[in-house]
Design a protein around this nucleic acid. Sequence first.
DNA 1: ATTCCCTTCCAG
DNA 2: CTGGAAGGGAAT
Length: 324
Amino acid sequence: MSTGEGDVSTKTRFNALARLNIKLALCPPGSKAPSSRDSSPMPEIYRPEENYASLQMSSAETPHAETISPLPSSMDLLVQDSPDSSTSPRVKPPPTSGEERTVRKEDMAQGKKQKIRTVFSQTQLYVLNDRFQRQKYLNLQQMQELSNIRNLSYKQVKTWFQNQRMKCKRWQKNHWPKESKSNSTPTAEYPGFYSYHQGYLRNTSGNLPIWSNQTRNNPNWGNQTWNSQSWSNHSWNGQSWSNHSWASQTWCPQAWNNQLQNCGEESLQPQIQFQQNSTSDLESILETSGESHSVIQQSAKYFSTQQIMDLFPNYSVNIQPEDV
DNA sequence: ATTCCCTTCCAG
DNA sequence: CTGGAAGGGAAT
Protein backbone atom coordinates (compact mmCIF):
# COMPACT_ATOMS: atom_id res chain seq x y z
CA MET A 1 0.00 0.00 0.00
CA SER A 2 2.65 2.36 0.90
CA THR A 3 4.21 2.27 -2.46
CA GLY A 4 0.92 1.44 -3.99
CA GLU A 5 0.34 2.94 -7.30
CA GLY A 6 3.12 3.15 -9.70
CA ASP A 7 1.47 5.94 -11.45
CA VAL A 8 4.00 6.55 -14.03
CA SER A 9 3.27 9.68 -15.80
CA THR A 10 2.36 8.50 -19.18
CA LYS A 11 0.78 11.54 -20.45
CA THR A 12 2.39 12.14 -23.71
CA ARG A 13 -0.11 11.53 -26.34
CA PHE A 14 -1.85 14.60 -25.24
CA ASN A 15 0.94 16.77 -26.24
CA ALA A 16 0.25 16.10 -29.81
CA LEU A 17 -3.33 16.81 -29.25
CA ALA A 18 -2.64 19.90 -27.37
CA ARG A 19 -0.89 21.34 -30.30
CA LEU A 20 -3.95 21.17 -32.34
CA ASN A 21 -5.36 23.62 -30.01
CA ILE A 22 -8.76 23.00 -31.19
CA LYS A 23 -11.29 25.50 -30.40
CA LEU A 24 -14.82 24.58 -30.11
CA ALA A 25 -17.79 26.68 -29.82
CA LEU A 26 -20.01 24.71 -27.66
CA CYS A 27 -23.63 25.08 -27.30
CA PRO A 28 -24.93 22.80 -24.70
CA PRO A 29 -28.28 21.37 -25.58
CA GLY A 30 -30.77 23.58 -24.04
CA SER A 31 -27.89 25.56 -22.78
CA LYS A 32 -28.74 24.11 -19.54
CA ALA A 33 -27.12 20.81 -19.55
CA PRO A 34 -25.56 20.35 -16.19
CA SER A 35 -26.18 23.80 -15.10
CA SER A 36 -25.93 22.75 -11.60
CA ARG A 37 -22.57 24.12 -11.14
CA ASP A 38 -24.18 25.54 -8.17
CA SER A 39 -22.39 26.13 -5.05
CA SER A 40 -19.08 24.50 -5.22
CA PRO A 41 -17.05 26.78 -7.40
CA MET A 42 -14.13 24.56 -7.66
CA PRO A 43 -14.88 20.94 -7.58
CA GLU A 44 -12.04 18.72 -7.22
CA ILE A 45 -10.90 15.24 -6.88
CA TYR A 46 -8.10 13.54 -5.31
CA ARG A 47 -5.35 12.43 -7.40
CA PRO A 48 -1.86 11.36 -6.95
CA GLU A 49 0.77 13.88 -7.35
CA GLU A 50 2.48 11.92 -9.96
CA ASN A 51 0.06 12.87 -12.59
CA TYR A 52 -0.98 15.97 -11.00
CA ALA A 53 1.79 18.12 -12.13
CA SER A 54 1.62 17.72 -15.80
CA LEU A 55 -1.97 18.34 -16.50
CA GLN A 56 -2.32 21.90 -15.77
CA MET A 57 -5.98 22.15 -16.36
CA SER A 58 -7.66 24.94 -14.69
CA SER A 59 -4.82 25.41 -12.43
CA ALA A 60 -6.43 28.46 -11.09
CA GLU A 61 -7.88 26.20 -8.55
CA THR A 62 -6.11 24.83 -5.64
CA PRO A 63 -7.85 27.37 -3.59
CA HIS A 64 -7.56 25.52 -0.48
CA ALA A 65 -5.55 22.46 -0.86
CA GLU A 66 -7.78 20.31 1.15
CA THR A 67 -5.70 19.29 3.96
CA ILE A 68 -6.15 15.68 3.78
CA SER A 69 -5.95 14.05 7.04
CA PRO A 70 -2.94 12.12 8.12
CA LEU A 71 -3.88 9.46 5.79
CA PRO A 72 -0.78 7.57 4.97
CA SER A 73 -1.85 6.20 1.72
CA SER A 74 -3.81 9.20 0.85
CA MET A 75 -0.80 11.25 1.05
CA ASP A 76 -0.50 10.62 -2.56
CA LEU A 77 -3.75 12.21 -3.23
CA LEU A 78 -4.13 15.71 -4.24
CA VAL A 79 -7.12 17.73 -4.80
CA GLN A 80 -7.75 19.00 -8.17
CA ASP A 81 -10.19 18.77 -10.93
CA SER A 82 -12.00 20.74 -13.42
CA PRO A 83 -15.43 21.92 -12.67
CA ASP A 84 -17.83 19.43 -13.78
CA SER A 85 -21.23 19.69 -12.39
CA SER A 86 -23.19 19.24 -9.35
CA THR A 87 -21.63 15.93 -8.91
CA SER A 88 -18.43 17.68 -8.89
CA PRO A 89 -15.91 15.53 -7.29
CA ARG A 90 -15.50 17.54 -4.32
CA VAL A 91 -13.92 15.86 -1.53
CA LYS A 92 -14.29 16.05 2.06
CA PRO A 93 -15.82 19.16 3.41
CA PRO A 94 -13.06 21.27 4.67
CA PRO A 95 -12.31 20.40 8.19
CA THR A 96 -13.69 23.76 8.76
CA SER A 97 -11.30 25.68 10.73
CA GLY A 98 -13.22 26.26 13.81
CA GLU A 99 -15.30 23.26 14.05
CA GLU A 100 -13.68 20.11 13.12
CA ARG A 101 -16.69 18.04 12.83
CA THR A 102 -15.60 15.76 15.51
CA VAL A 103 -13.52 13.85 13.17
CA ARG A 104 -13.91 10.72 15.03
CA LYS A 105 -11.06 11.42 17.21
CA GLU A 106 -11.66 8.19 18.90
CA ASP A 107 -11.05 6.38 15.71
CA MET A 108 -8.02 8.35 14.99
CA ALA A 109 -6.79 7.67 18.41
CA GLN A 110 -7.25 4.03 17.83
CA GLY A 111 -5.07 4.21 14.86
CA LYS A 112 -7.89 4.28 12.41
CA LYS A 113 -7.21 6.49 9.53
CA GLN A 114 -9.64 9.00 8.33
CA LYS A 115 -10.98 8.15 4.98
CA ILE A 116 -11.77 10.47 2.26
CA ARG A 117 -14.40 9.52 -0.11
CA THR A 118 -13.82 10.80 -3.56
CA VAL A 119 -16.77 11.65 -5.63
CA PHE A 120 -16.00 11.18 -9.25
CA SER A 121 -17.36 13.55 -11.75
CA GLN A 122 -19.93 12.57 -14.28
CA THR A 123 -17.53 12.58 -17.07
CA GLN A 124 -15.06 10.55 -15.21
CA LEU A 125 -17.73 8.05 -14.50
CA TYR A 126 -18.79 8.09 -18.04
CA VAL A 127 -15.38 7.26 -19.28
CA LEU A 128 -14.94 4.60 -16.69
CA ASN A 129 -18.28 3.08 -17.33
CA ASP A 130 -17.84 3.24 -21.00
CA ARG A 131 -14.72 1.26 -20.66
CA PHE A 132 -16.04 -1.11 -18.11
CA GLN A 133 -18.90 -2.07 -20.28
CA ARG A 134 -16.66 -3.75 -22.69
CA GLN A 135 -13.74 -4.53 -20.58
CA LYS A 136 -13.89 -5.70 -17.08
CA TYR A 137 -10.25 -6.15 -16.55
CA LEU A 138 -7.59 -3.76 -17.51
CA ASN A 139 -3.96 -4.38 -17.45
CA LEU A 140 -1.51 -2.05 -15.97
CA GLN A 141 -0.90 -0.05 -19.03
CA GLN A 142 -4.52 0.30 -19.83
CA MET A 143 -5.31 1.46 -16.40
CA GLN A 144 -2.62 4.00 -16.56
CA GLU A 145 -3.80 5.26 -19.84
CA LEU A 146 -7.30 5.43 -18.64
CA SER A 147 -6.27 7.23 -15.57
CA ASN A 148 -4.51 9.82 -17.59
CA ILE A 149 -7.53 10.51 -19.58
CA ARG A 150 -9.25 12.10 -16.78
CA ASN A 151 -6.82 12.83 -14.17
CA LEU A 152 -7.42 9.86 -12.09
CA SER A 153 -4.79 7.94 -10.39
CA TYR A 154 -3.95 4.48 -11.37
CA LYS A 155 -4.98 3.40 -7.99
CA GLN A 156 -8.33 4.99 -8.33
CA VAL A 157 -8.96 3.37 -11.63
CA LYS A 158 -7.98 0.05 -10.30
CA THR A 159 -10.13 0.43 -7.27
CA TRP A 160 -13.03 1.62 -9.29
CA PHE A 161 -12.88 -1.32 -11.59
CA GLN A 162 -12.64 -3.66 -8.71
CA ASN A 163 -15.60 -2.12 -7.03
CA GLN A 164 -17.53 -2.24 -10.24
CA ARG A 165 -16.81 -5.86 -10.69
CA MET A 166 -17.98 -6.61 -7.24
CA LYS A 167 -21.03 -4.52 -7.68
CA CYS A 168 -21.86 -6.16 -10.92
CA LYS A 169 -21.22 -9.53 -9.51
CA ARG A 170 -23.41 -8.87 -6.56
CA TRP A 171 -26.12 -7.66 -8.78
CA GLN A 172 -25.94 -10.65 -10.96
CA LYS A 173 -26.05 -13.02 -8.11
CA ASN A 174 -29.14 -11.41 -6.85
CA HIS A 175 -30.77 -11.65 -10.18
CA TRP A 176 -30.05 -15.15 -11.02
CA PRO A 177 -29.53 -16.83 -7.75
CA LYS A 178 -30.56 -20.04 -9.28
CA GLU A 179 -28.32 -20.63 -12.13
CA SER A 180 -30.55 -23.24 -13.55
CA LYS A 181 -27.64 -25.18 -14.80
CA SER A 182 -27.79 -23.01 -17.77
CA ASN A 183 -24.26 -23.18 -18.74
CA SER A 184 -24.85 -20.54 -21.24
CA THR A 185 -23.67 -17.08 -20.72
CA PRO A 186 -25.58 -15.53 -17.96
CA THR A 187 -26.90 -12.51 -19.61
CA ALA A 188 -26.82 -10.13 -16.84
CA GLU A 189 -28.64 -6.95 -17.00
CA TYR A 190 -26.62 -5.07 -14.62
CA PRO A 191 -28.21 -1.70 -14.54
CA GLY A 192 -25.49 -0.30 -12.52
CA PHE A 193 -24.04 1.63 -15.33
CA TYR A 194 -25.06 5.14 -15.57
CA SER A 195 -27.17 4.87 -12.57
CA TYR A 196 -25.27 7.29 -10.57
CA HIS A 197 -27.81 9.19 -8.74
CA GLN A 198 -25.27 11.67 -7.78
CA GLY A 199 -25.06 12.95 -11.23
CA TYR A 200 -27.26 13.17 -14.17
CA LEU A 201 -26.38 9.87 -15.50
CA ARG A 202 -29.22 7.68 -14.94
CA ASN A 203 -30.26 5.06 -17.20
CA THR A 204 -32.41 2.91 -15.13
CA SER A 205 -35.35 5.15 -15.43
CA GLY A 206 -34.53 6.48 -18.79
CA ASN A 207 -33.53 9.71 -17.38
CA LEU A 208 -30.59 10.76 -19.32
CA PRO A 209 -30.18 14.42 -19.53
CA ILE A 210 -26.91 14.68 -21.19
CA TRP A 211 -26.14 11.86 -23.44
CA SER A 212 -29.53 10.55 -24.06
CA ASN A 213 -30.21 8.14 -26.76
CA GLN A 214 -28.79 9.77 -29.71
CA THR A 215 -29.90 7.04 -31.92
CA ARG A 216 -26.83 6.34 -33.91
CA ASN A 217 -26.57 3.21 -31.92
CA ASN A 218 -26.94 -0.05 -33.52
CA PRO A 219 -29.59 -2.21 -32.02
CA ASN A 220 -27.06 -4.72 -31.06
CA TRP A 221 -26.09 -3.73 -27.66
CA GLY A 222 -24.35 -6.29 -25.70
CA ASN A 223 -24.02 -8.46 -28.66
CA GLN A 224 -20.67 -9.29 -29.81
CA THR A 225 -21.23 -7.73 -33.09
CA TRP A 226 -19.07 -4.75 -33.22
CA ASN A 227 -17.56 -5.42 -29.96
CA SER A 228 -15.85 -8.60 -30.59
CA GLN A 229 -13.78 -7.44 -33.38
CA SER A 230 -13.05 -4.08 -32.08
CA TRP A 231 -11.54 -5.51 -29.02
CA SER A 232 -9.82 -8.39 -30.52
CA ASN A 233 -7.56 -6.14 -32.37
CA HIS A 234 -7.28 -3.77 -29.60
CA SER A 235 -4.45 -5.84 -28.39
CA TRP A 236 -3.82 -6.55 -24.84
CA ASN A 237 -0.26 -5.76 -24.99
CA GLY A 238 -0.42 -6.28 -21.37
CA GLN A 239 1.02 -9.42 -20.23
CA SER A 240 -1.10 -11.82 -18.46
CA TRP A 241 -4.52 -10.54 -18.44
CA SER A 242 -5.81 -13.12 -20.74
CA ASN A 243 -4.33 -15.98 -18.90
CA HIS A 244 -4.46 -15.14 -15.39
CA SER A 245 -6.97 -12.47 -14.94
CA TRP A 246 -10.08 -13.81 -16.32
CA ALA A 247 -9.23 -17.37 -15.99
CA SER A 248 -9.38 -16.87 -12.33
CA GLN A 249 -12.89 -15.67 -12.43
CA THR A 250 -14.71 -18.51 -10.94
CA TRP A 251 -18.11 -17.25 -10.63
CA CYS A 252 -18.81 -16.26 -14.11
CA PRO A 253 -15.93 -16.43 -16.42
CA GLN A 254 -17.83 -16.11 -19.59
CA ALA A 255 -19.57 -13.02 -18.60
CA TRP A 256 -16.47 -11.37 -17.45
CA ASN A 257 -13.79 -11.94 -19.75
CA ASN A 258 -15.75 -11.79 -22.76
CA GLN A 259 -14.26 -8.51 -23.36
CA LEU A 260 -17.45 -7.56 -24.89
CA GLN A 261 -19.88 -8.96 -22.57
CA ASN A 262 -21.43 -6.06 -20.97
CA CYS A 263 -23.27 -6.59 -17.86
CA GLY A 264 -26.34 -4.78 -18.87
CA GLU A 265 -27.47 -5.36 -22.28
CA GLU A 266 -30.80 -3.85 -22.81
CA SER A 267 -30.63 -1.84 -19.75
CA LEU A 268 -28.01 0.44 -20.95
CA GLN A 269 -28.40 1.27 -24.46
CA PRO A 270 -28.01 4.94 -24.15
CA GLN A 271 -24.47 5.47 -24.88
CA ILE A 272 -22.68 7.59 -27.22
CA GLN A 273 -20.83 5.88 -29.85
CA PHE A 274 -18.80 8.39 -31.56
CA GLN A 275 -17.56 6.18 -34.21
CA GLN A 276 -18.78 2.78 -34.23
CA ASN A 277 -15.92 1.21 -35.88
CA SER A 278 -12.71 0.11 -34.42
CA THR A 279 -12.81 1.88 -31.18
CA SER A 280 -15.73 3.37 -29.53
CA ASP A 281 -13.88 4.25 -26.48
CA LEU A 282 -13.46 7.77 -25.65
CA GLU A 283 -10.07 7.10 -24.38
CA SER A 284 -9.08 5.02 -27.26
CA ILE A 285 -10.15 7.64 -29.61
CA LEU A 286 -8.25 10.17 -27.74
CA GLU A 287 -5.20 8.12 -27.80
CA THR A 288 -5.19 7.78 -31.45
CA SER A 289 -5.41 11.49 -31.47
CA GLY A 290 -5.66 11.52 -35.16
CA GLU A 291 -9.24 12.29 -35.64
CA SER A 292 -9.65 13.35 -32.15
CA HIS A 293 -10.94 16.73 -32.86
CA SER A 294 -13.93 15.41 -34.61
CA VAL A 295 -14.60 13.43 -31.57
CA ILE A 296 -14.53 16.45 -29.48
CA GLN A 297 -16.85 18.20 -31.75
CA GLN A 298 -19.12 15.28 -31.57
CA SER A 299 -18.99 15.24 -27.89
CA ALA A 300 -19.77 18.86 -27.80
CA LYS A 301 -23.21 17.96 -28.85
CA TYR A 302 -23.84 15.82 -25.91
CA PHE A 303 -21.66 17.10 -23.22
CA SER A 304 -21.75 20.28 -21.40
CA THR A 305 -19.02 22.74 -21.62
CA GLN A 306 -17.65 21.66 -18.40
CA GLN A 307 -17.74 18.12 -19.39
CA ILE A 308 -15.85 18.77 -22.50
CA MET A 309 -13.22 20.48 -20.56
CA ASP A 310 -13.29 17.68 -18.21
CA LEU A 311 -12.76 15.15 -20.86
CA PHE A 312 -10.33 17.08 -22.87
CA PRO A 313 -8.44 19.06 -20.39
CA ASN A 314 -5.65 19.85 -22.70
CA TYR A 315 -7.68 21.38 -25.36
CA SER A 316 -8.31 24.98 -25.36
CA VAL A 317 -11.96 25.00 -25.56
CA ASN A 318 -13.76 28.06 -26.46
CA ILE A 319 -16.47 28.11 -24.01
CA GLN A 320 -19.06 30.49 -23.20
CA PRO A 321 -19.08 31.21 -19.56
CA GLU A 322 -22.52 30.07 -18.98
CA ASP A 323 -22.60 29.44 -15.42
CA VAL A 324 -24.89 30.29 -12.72
C1' DA B 1 2.32 -7.83 -8.77
C1' DT B 2 -2.83 -8.84 -9.24
C1' DT B 3 -7.29 -10.48 -7.83
C1' DC B 4 -11.60 -11.24 -4.74
C1' DC B 5 -13.81 -10.27 -0.67
C1' DC B 6 -15.16 -7.91 3.34
C1' DT B 7 -15.03 -3.90 5.90
C1' DT B 8 -14.70 0.94 6.94
C1' DC B 9 -16.61 5.27 6.74
C1' DC B 10 -17.46 9.47 4.15
C1' DA B 11 -20.79 12.13 1.07
C1' DG B 12 -25.22 12.88 -0.25
C1' DC C 1 -29.67 5.50 5.92
C1' DT C 2 -27.58 4.21 1.47
C1' DG C 3 -24.11 4.10 -2.09
C1' DG C 4 -19.67 3.68 -3.04
C1' DA C 5 -14.54 4.88 -2.78
C1' DA C 6 -11.00 3.21 -0.40
C1' DG C 7 -8.47 0.10 3.27
C1' DG C 8 -6.92 -4.25 4.28
C1' DG C 9 -6.29 -9.21 4.18
C1' DA C 10 -5.93 -13.63 2.00
C1' DA C 11 -5.15 -16.13 -2.05
C1' DT C 12 -2.98 -16.50 -6.63
